[in-house]
Design a protein around this nucleic acid. Structure first.
Lengths: 124, 124
DNA sequence: ATTAGAATTAGAATAATTTTAAATTGAGTA
DNA sequence: TACTCAATTTAAAATTATTCTAATTCTAAT
């Protein structure tokens, strides 16, 4: 694990949002102000390949990165905010229904977050 | 609904794969050889906004488009092939666990498809 | 026919990410 | 210590996917 790899892993593991490569780059620059965006991309790719972090692909925004604790994502269809939640684990059910093993799964739930819901009600 | 909109909807609804904008463009050109890629993107966006088709965002490949019948996706982690399947509907369970209504959800299952599984066994 | 509005086109522009080649760093070793 | 090989990082260009802009064309109602 390289210097920047370690820093990036630390940033991803100790943040409470879902940063893009650009976000991570900016945060990393505060620690090591010599770094360059391509390095961030390189390391994010390596870390994903090694299974140290996971990539969260969301429609209409650049890729985001997240820790690997098993959890699902709620995505507000109004403002795009992403919230973590852990729904019942589906692996076993899925494997039973399929009849063969799976690797992992990715569950994204589209909803209207409390904030946007309030706005809507006020507007209506 | 416009001429190209209708054609594109027809292509998406009557195909058994998960075409990208480019794929759709090529298929559309066989029918109407004057069309241009931007038109395909425009129409795909409108059709998505109208809920006539759905966008399938897969890591590491351009967006794909699919019909709106409720189903989930199996994605081979080796070759990237996408297969449809309908797993038990989770909407109710999700809403119960969350305590508020959801809009929809998107379930992607990562696995090794039969084809790649065979290859692996031969290789091992 | 005329015209207003929408759809389409061509092509430039943008955004996100990857690639390339050179420079730098670092670890192990003579 | 100096040397070397490989890996990492950098800078910059390239690529890919998609969007935007402005001009043109189409449509369908007057």
């Amino acid at each position: 694990m390289t210097k920047y790899g370690r820093e990036i892993l630390d940033i991803v593991n100790h943040c409470d949002d879902h940063p893009t490569a650009e976000d991570i780059f900016l945060r990393l620059k505060e620690r090591c102000n010599k770094v360059v965006l391509a390095t961030v991309y390189n390391n994010l790719n390596s870390l994903c390949a090694q299974g140290e972090i996971r990539r969260v692909t969301v429609e209409g925004s650049p890729d985001r990165y997240d820790n690997t604790t098993p959890h699902d994502h709620l995505i507000c269809k109004c403002c795009g905010a992403i919230k973590d939640m852990k729904f019942t684990d589906l692996s076993e059910q899925l494997e039973q229904q399929l009849g063969f093993p799976i690797e992992s799964y990715d569950l994204k739930i589209s909803y209207v977050c409390p904030h946007c819901r309030n706005k809507q009600q006020v507007g209506a």
